[in-house]
Design a protein around this nucleic acid. Structure first.
Lengths: 152, 152
DNA sequence: TGACTCATGTCAGTATTCTGACATAGATTG
DNA sequence: CAATCTATGTCAGAATACTGACATGAGTCA
């Protein structure tokens, strides 16, 4: 149409499409989590702790793709409300291993069902083969982006 | 490892991987845009206007995946700083068609080059066929997610 | 025509995330 | 052993995006 020479055509840009897909996923997740009074980061934190008990604040932050400062704010709220517990002293270093309380686990159960339904909906039109293709392609993109993060 | 029954295994979840890829892309874009004093949303707005001159605030918001209120704040700043112009009166309805000024176009040029390099890096490990596969698969996921947005 | 619905621009306040900064614990290195 | 580096937790302030709300213009419909 216009200046297509050095531009990034949004219609054909995989980056743009990636952002669009991620946005659609986030919206869909927020939609099903809102009735449970839970944000996406909130859910991510609980899910991470369920699958990898004892993760520290910084590890949770990396797993949820936010800064450790942001995760700290969330974690303190979750601790205050009794969804998560952390020891008063670090067993080693400064990292405090966090764990779900029974209440946290209970809260997560409903959310997991809701999020699972969203993921299934997203994959509805894809065959098993296409799903593993998508997995492999995304892995490759992530790897390429991270690789030369320093070597800029 | 632990409770894999009804859970969403993060290691094998396409949703999680999608979020990871999108996060990596955002980080990489912020990295190259920061020296230009430009945020991702800022760049998205200019790029959208370059490719589709005359888009309204609401249309730009949808294209950049933010609310129209957020885009309005950005757009007013861009207008104040002389990157964008909007007519005082709407030619039809209330929508004000925005356009890049020469200064906005000049500012975008450098950013486009930077972002293009990120996108190329992301696709470095993929063949042409794999890229169109990724495109098709992402399109399918987006469609599936949007389809039943209302029918919840 | 008049009531209704819908999309838009915009203001205000809230919430969330980020950047900057500091102190501390462990590992590395000379 | 001392210096340095890296990672961590945490506080504070700034930036960014969001929800809520209101008024306005255009289309629909009875």
């Amino acid at each position: 149409m216009s200046q297509n020479g050095a531009g990034v055509n949004l219609e054909t840009s995989l980056g743009y499409l990636l952002k669009e897909a991620s946005s659609a996923l986030r919206v869909a997740m927020e939609e099903v989590l809102r009735p449970l009074g839970m944000s996406v980061t909130h859910y991510s934190c609980l899910e991470l702790l369920a699958q990898r008990p004892g993760l520290s604040n910084s590890e949770l932050a990396r797993g949820a793709f936010v800064t450790r400062q942001s995760m700290n704010v969330l974690l303190q709220a979750l601790e205050r409300d009794g969804y998560v517990t952390r020891p008063d002293e670090a067993p080693v270093g400064k990292a405090l291993p966090a764990r779900l309380t029974p209440r946290g686990r209970r809260s997560l159960e409903k959310a997991t069902v809701a999020v699972r339904s969203v993921e299934l909906r997203m994959l509805a039109g894809l065959t098993e083969t296409e799903q593993s293709d998508a997995f492999r392609l995304l892995k490759s993109m992530i790897h390429s982006l991270r690789d030369s993060d320093d070597a800029t």
